[in-house]
Amino acid sequence: MDKGGIRRRLAVCLALVTASGLLAIAVPAQAHAAPTRCEGRKVRTYSFSTGTLHVYKKGGYVCAVTYAKNPGRKQRMMVSVRAYRATAVTDEGRYSRRAGPVTVHAGHRCVWVKGQVGGGSVSKGWILC
């Protein structure tokens, strides 16, 4: 085999190894993407004029999502969960369908949940105590 053939085969092999290495790095990153819904069982649902706040619990974790009553156009939305004596975890921005999910480790502590869609909102006192 001449030197040109060997070089071509080496170039092809190097390209294949590089591509497979990039795929090995990229696939796990996609596998750990942010969840699009809460895990666990639904423990509370709070409806308000412009949306609904859903609260889920699994183990010591509490998760919440706010859904718009009329999805489609982007509007200001927010969801927040705060475990007692801890900092709140919040997702807020301009969304068309939902804000969240947000999850906190509450253990056996009470949590305070809030949700907002446009001009309507809900804020519940300490729950799940």
Rank of each mutant, 00 (worst) to 15 (best):
S96V: 03
V55L: 05
R8W: 09
A86Q: 13
M78E: 09
G51Q: 06
V104K: 03
A11Y: 05
C63E: 04
I6L: 15
G40I: 07
Y46D: 07
R37V: 04
K124W: 00
R73D: 14
G107F: 05
W112R: 13
S80C: 03
G40E: 03
R37G: 00
K58R: 15
L14G: 10
A11E: 13
E92A: 10
Y95Q: 06
A99N: 07
M1Y: 01
V17P: 06
K114D: 10
Q30A: 07
S20D: 10
V65M: 13
A68I: 08
A15S: 15
G21F: 11
G4S: 14
N70W: 13
V43W: 10
K58N: 14
A88F: 08
D91S: 15
A34E: 15
V102Q: 05
A29E: 09
Y84F: 09
I6T: 12
T90E: 02
A33P: 01
T45Y: 01
T103V: 14
V81I: 10
P71S: 10
I127D: 10
V17A: 15
W126F: 05
M78I: 10
M77C: 08
Y56I: 07
G118Y: 08
Q116I: 02
V111C: 13
Y84D: 13
E39D: 12
Y46C: 03
V62C: 09
S121R: 12
I127E: 09
C129M: 11
K57V: 06
R98E: 13
P101L: 04
V113G: 00
S49V: 02
A11H: 07
K57Q: 15
A24N: 05
A64N: 05
T36N: 15
K58E: 15
M77D: 06
S49M: 01
V43D: 01
A83K: 03
D91T: 12
A15H: 07
K3P: 00
R76Y: 15
G40P: 03
R73E: 09
Y95G: 04
V17S: 09
P35C: 07
G118W: 09
V113S: 05
R9S: 02
Y67V: 02
T87V: 05
A24I: 09
K57Y: 03
P28G: 11
A19N: 03
V17I: 15
I6W: 09
C63P: 05
P71A: 11
Y84C: 04
Y67N: 14
R109H: 15
Q116D: 00
R94G: 02
T87P: 01
A86G: 03
P101K: 10
A11G: 06
G119C: 00
K74R: 14
Y67L: 12
S47G: 04
K3N: 11
G60E: 02
T66K: 09
S96L: 08
L10Y: 08
G118A: 04
D2Y: 02
L10S: 07
G72C: 06
R94F: 06
I25H: 12
P71L: 11
V89G: 03
